[in-house]
């Protein structure tokens, strides 16, 4: 799973969110490093929806602008969970090696 995709799923794990909300949340999660643009975001959402990882939760119109909120499906939750544990394991392995390197 690529980083932007992981961050989108992470953003949606908090609460259902609309497109611009996801962009802001991903920027915040990554410390401003990942700036999603609309074409990329909706391309990713299309793919995730096709894989059944996210779904539309509700729609509303604010000031004449359509906001469609997305949420994780059960598959999406387990997918993100698996990916997070994988990354955590990798990070854990790296940390333990680095500790050994620091204490000869």
């Amino acid at each position: 799973m690529q980083e932007p995709t992981f961050l989108i799923l992470t953003a949606l794990a908090g609460a259902p969110m609309h497109g611009y909300g996801v962009i802001q949340e991903v920027a915040e999660l990554s410390g401003g490093r990942v700036k999603l643009r609309p074409g990329t975001l909706y391309g990713a959402l299309d793919r995730l929806a096709e894989q059944g990882l996210v779904t539309v939760s509700r729609e509303e119109i604010v000031d004449g602008r359509l906001r469609r909120y997305y949420e994780l499906t059960r598959d999406g939750v387990s997918h993100l969970d698996a990916e997070a544990s994988r990354l955590a394991d990798n990070a854990q392995a790296a940390r333990s090696r680095l500790r050994r390197l620091a204490t000869p």
Binding site: H18, G19, P38, G39, Y42, L66
Partner: peptide
């Protein structure tokens, strides 16, 4: 998808722009 993409473009463009950012 059109309407929500427009909404997201407008939201991320900010209030003072008259053209969407080149990157977008």
């Amino acid at each position: 998808r059109g309407d929500e993409i427009v909404a997201t473009l407008l939201d991320s463009a900010g209030p003072h722009r008259t053209v969407p950012p080149l990157g977008d």
